[in-house]
């Protein structure tokens, strides 16, 4: 009410807010821009249609062309066995590869949380240990992690295991460090008071410390989820023969931009949805603090 008037006229400490309208308009503007670009590039260069395919091409051959990423085993014949490109086959291909990517990303992420959280809590309880681990993590943090996915393919072969191990490796440190730091910055009375009530250290860890650090951990869990999705993409881009990242790499190899855009869009949608889910769940868990 008054805030609206106030911000419009005086605006000393004006705060902007996100608007769904703007989000929608931005997406529409992006589509229009793409179409204009494709017309422009198509008219001025000979290869233009391949470099920036118009939307109608993305929505037709860009989708049906995905059929050859279907690897069989789910009933219908693959394109290698002679099947024609079609929308249902493309849908199967997207489903198959999305599933592979989803499983890898989530398995790796959950594993990283399941390892990083308890180890972080344990490490934080002993100060020298926490400082030692911070020292190691401070170094590992600077490694070009995304570029190290080929290593995991060398160790585990081009398998889902390699991908999961890589995702876990990438996200584990984020969770571990954030947990240790969050415990470290808790006010002392919080753990001293329950100790006077006679709770055991384990009980204190689970019933007091864990809920208390959740608000601080929320950002870290989001960051770790983002890292997990970047890692799964990196591992699929180099070496592994299934998943959306592999499909993306294939479209790059043959410069099939229309299909590339569709695959990238599907991947973006999945990772966006996953992060929203993490955000939602952690928000539920930390509801008491808001």
């Amino acid at each position: 009410m008054i805030e609206d008037v106030g911000t419009r006229r005086f605006g000393v400490a004006l705060r902007t807010r996100p608007r769904n309208r703007a989000l929608l308009a931005g997406v529409l503007a992006g589509l229009v821009l793409w179409q204009l670009l494709s017309l422009l590039v198509g008219a001025t260069t000979s290869q233009g249609q391949n470099v920036v395919p118009p939307l109608q091409q993305v929505l037709t051959t860009g989708i049906t062309g995905l059929s050859h990423f279907y690897k069989g085993g789910w009933g219908p014949e693959t394109t290698l066995q002679g099947a024609e490109d079609s929308v249902p086959l493309a849908a199967l291909a997207v489903l198959q590869n999305s599933l592979a990517t989803l499983v890898r990303a989530w398995a790796g992420y959950l594993l990283a949380v399941a390892l990083g959280l308890p180890i972080g809590l344990a490490v934080a309880a002993v100060r020298p240990l926490r400082q030692a681990v911070s020292g190691i993590a401070g170094l590992l943090r600077m490694l070009p992690v995304l570029a190290m996915s080929p290593l995991f393919a060398l160790w585990f072969g081009a398998t889902t295991t390699a991908s999961i191990a890589f995702v876990t490796f990438g996200a584990f440190w984020v969770v571990l460090l954030a947990t240790a730091n969050a415990v470290n910055s808790l006010p002392a009375p919080l753990t001293e008071y329950p100790r006077t009530l006679g709770l055991t250290p384990l009980q204190i860890s689970i019933r007091i410390v864990l809920p208390a650090i959740l608000p601080a951990l929320r950002g870290a869990l989001m960051l770790a989820a983002g890292t997990a999705w970047a890692c799964v993409l990196a591992s699929e881009l180099y070496g592994i023969q299934s998943g959306l990242g592999w499909a993306l790499n294939q479209t790059l190899l043959y410069t099939l931009v229309d299909q590339m855009v569709v695959v990238a869009g599907v991947f973006a949608g999945l990772s966006l949805a996953s992060l929203r889910l993490v955000n939602c769940v952690t928000g539920r868990l930390t509801g008491w603090s808001e």
């Binding site: 608007r19 703007a22 931005g26 983002g226 790059l252 410069t255 931009v257 855009v261």
Partner: peptide, 25 residues
């Protein structure tokens, strides 16, 4: 905010690496 929001919202959650193939082309 309205102009930057779509970009920050999407790529705040989606790994930018996904755009690498397009940039390479």
């Amino acid at each position: 905010r309205d102009v930057t929001e779509p970009v920050l919202f999407v790529f705040g959650a989606v790994p930018v690496l996904v755009a690498a193939p397009l940039f390479l082309v």
